[in-house]
């Protein structure tokens, strides 16, 4: 018997079938309903923006790795996910150079300069969005368009988002507005308006065990509770349901705050992350200068992740036992 060819490795000798690629594939599948709805509401322009952002993200990652002499990682799918998420954060009226500039910042500055996948300290897509917000404020936050509900249209009609109306004009949502926010028939970034599509994606991610319930639940529940209590027009005047369905809460809570690299690894840390994001979102919306606070609240909490991971650890089995005397009886 020829024994010389036996392979020897350390344990365990078997591994789960889950890979980086399979996780990114699940995230893309989960994002698909919202992508379809973005095209339904905002027309072909939305599709063009998504394709352009994804292509730019992948191209910048490839280009950076070629120039830096690093192994090429574009096939892991993470750049595609970043591209879709960044596109979802753009208004339909964005000029076509904006996704390219946003992708450059997201991929090269926020992700690759810090070491690539797993090493970045803030969510790349949100970093790209924040950069565009700061650099091109009128184009990002001043040119909202109403849904056209014609996939073949490339026209756009100016409109304000409900959050802007609430902030500036004392708008009080009616039942019809809540329904519109639920199905996505409202002005906003192309991927954030359709709450039901994003929730479906979230359920898919929970089912595939890509994410756990902690961050989305804590985030959405905090926004619901806090915006109801700290109502825009006085204590207990808020409409929590409308607040969680409006703006970027669903997209942020399900897809952005749950980004592995920039969220805590422990369950308690995740709960605190969700509560922190939810609290900041409501504070910015109600008292801050911006109508919407999802992206900044997640970016700020991203910075706290190392701290949360340091202090919110699970109790090690067999250590710090609650009642020392009782265990041995």
């Amino acid at each position: 018997m020829d024994n010389k060819r036996l392979v020897v490795t350390s344990t365990p000798h078997t591994r789960s079938t889950e890979t980086v690629e399979s996780i990114m594939r699940h995230v893309l599948i989960a994002l698909a309903p919202a992508a379809v709805m973005s095209v339904y509401y905002f027309g072909l322009r939305a599709l063009l923006l998504i394709v352009l952002t994804v292509a730019s993200c992948v191209a910048f990652e490839l280009g950076f790795e070629k120039i830096a002499g690093k192994p090429v990682t574009i096939l892991d799918g993470s750049a595609v996910v970043t591209g879709v998420l960044l596109a979802f954060n753009l208004p339909a009226s964005s000029p076509f150079w904006m996704p390219v500039v946003g992708s450059l910042f997201a991929i090269v500055v926020a992700k690759m300069l810090f070491g690539g996948l797993g090493q970045n300290f803030i969510n790349p897509a949100l970093a790209g969005r924040a950069f565009l917000m700061a650099a091109y404020t009128p184009k990002m936050a001043g040119s909202w368009t109403a849904p056209v509900r014609n996939p073949f249209s490339i026209d756009a009609v100016a409109s304000s988002t409900p959050l802007i109306l609430m902030k500036e004009e004392g708008f009080v949502p009616a039942a019809q507005d809540i329904l519109n926010a639920f199905v996505g028939n409202t002005a906003g970034c192309i991927g954030e308006t359709c709450a039901i599509a994003l929730i479906l994606g979230g359920i898919y991610l929970l089912w595939k065990k890509v994410i756990t319930w902690h961050i989305p639940f804590a985030y959405i529940a905090t926004v619901y509770a806090l915006s109801t209590i700290l109502g825009r027009y006085g204590i207990m005047t808020g409409d929590g349901l409308f607040e969680i369905l409006s703006g970027g809460v669903m997209l942020g809570a399900i897809f952005m705050a749950t980004d592995y690299t920039t969220s805590p690894v422990t369950d308690t840390g995740k709960l605190v992350m969700g509560i922190g994001c939810g609290t900041l979102t409501v504070l910015i919306r109600n008292y801050g200068g911006y109508p919407e606070g999802v992206s900044y609240s997640i970016l700020i909490l991203n910075l706290f992740v190392p701290l949360l991971d340091k202090y919110l650890r699970p109790r090690v089995f067999g250590k710090d036992l609650p009642k020392k005397g009782e265990a041995a009886k």
Partner: peptide
Amino acid sequence: RPCLRCGKCVDHCPMHLMPL
């Protein structure tokens, strides 16, 4: 490959350690 910080090792560790 590089760690994603997904936290699955923490979720599954029977001793409640942080393997990553």
